[in-house]
Design a protein around this nucleic acid. Structure first.
Lengths: 200, 200
DNA sequence: GTCTATAGCCCGATAGAC
DNA sequence: GTCTATCGGGCTATAGAC
């Protein structure tokens, strides 16, 4: 047999997970390296055996997360599905990402804006633009083909979808009464058909 | 004539406005008293002639804002309007608040969670509960009376409305192409009737 | 109402022992 | 891989001169 394909998480990976939880809960700037070390049961200086800096920790968390997310998005966009199906799949992917990688999503939501000003995090700006282009192209195609209503501002529609999906990281918890799939379905129900009762 | 009813803003009020802008842009914790003093053109020590502490500044910003907002909400809830009209009025009030008091809304969105842990900010927790009860009662009445669809989780519906409205503070700017009233109308159009094209 | 000057503390990061 | 010990600097807040 070959070596186990899923080795026990390395100490380094464990420390990164601890850091991500704290960054997500308290914010990147307000979490200190001493907070991270305390949570890991070591002293702050020992962290620098594993990582160059606090900044390189958050960099690794965000870049790893975004690489995985975009790989999933690209597969949907490249598919032959119609607009509505693509939109539904993108929303499901996003809620699954919140479920699987909540800390990374929260850090992205809360701290990416401040980090993106630094050259080191230029990829955050680039990915943001890529994300907006992807969604806007899809929305515009939906309006053109009649899948989406045509009396709304497309830019506002984009922001509405983007915000409603990601802001759920603020309250969604993996063990809660509704799973990521159910939440995605109900969100899509509101997003596509609205809260108002149907005229019968 | 009586004394002018709207005196020129006091130095104190001006400093508080400067602080609110910075808190909103960079976050409460990461904004330093030196940042505020620099923006006001004075030295950090001089701020303490006007305010007890940085904490008392953010306290005054948030408590003043919330008192005004709840006064407006209460008038709607106490009215004789039907559920749908009340819901529309509440959303319009919220977007008007973002338009009028953007810094306070942003600070509330970004920093209230961390501040609420302190006893001094217990009113944030109380108001949050009051806000949720107000909205949940309205949503449940809407479902009961047939104004809102009955196949969705009411708690999730509450979160959806709450989040979609307030998260707009992240991108809305007073001088932009769409005013607060137009944004509120389009948000309500999506929220109540959905993005999907109507079957004709 | 603002300035000068500083107290006391916490921050990220480093050097070298074990 | 973690510890001891610490550097240089930024933080909130204060005391007293002007």
């Amino acid at each position: 047999m070959a070596a186990a394909p899923v080795p026990a998480p390395s100490r380094r990976a464990e420390l990164l997970r601890i850091a991500a939880d704290l960054f997500a809960e308290r914010g990147y700037k307000t979490t200190t390296v001493r907070d991270i070390a305390d949570a890991a049961g070591i002293l702050s200086g020992s962290l620098y055996h594993h990582f160059d800096s606090k900044e390189s920790m958050v960099d690794e968390i965000l870049s790893t997360f975004q690489a995985g997310l975009f790989a999933e998005y690209d597969a949907v966009i490249a598919s032959e599905d119609d607009v509505r199906t693509k939109l539904e799949r993108l929303v499901h992917i996003s809620f699954a990402a919140i479920d699987r990688d909540r800390p990374a999503v929260a850090i992205f939501q809360n701290d990416a804006g401040a980090l993106a000003a630094d050259d080191r995090f230029a990829y955050l700006r680039e990915n943001n633009e890529r994300f907006q282009t992807m969604w806007s192209d899809l929305i515009n195609e939906g309006i053109r083909t009649g899948a989406l209503r045509d009396d709304l501002d497309p830019v506002l529609t984009y922001r509405f979808i983007r915000d409603t999906v990601w802001v759920a990281v603020g309250w969604y918890r993996p063990g809660g009464p509704l799973g990521a799939t159910e939440v995605a379905e109900q969100y899509l129900a509101i997003l596509l058909d609205g809260l108002g009762a149907r005229a019968s």
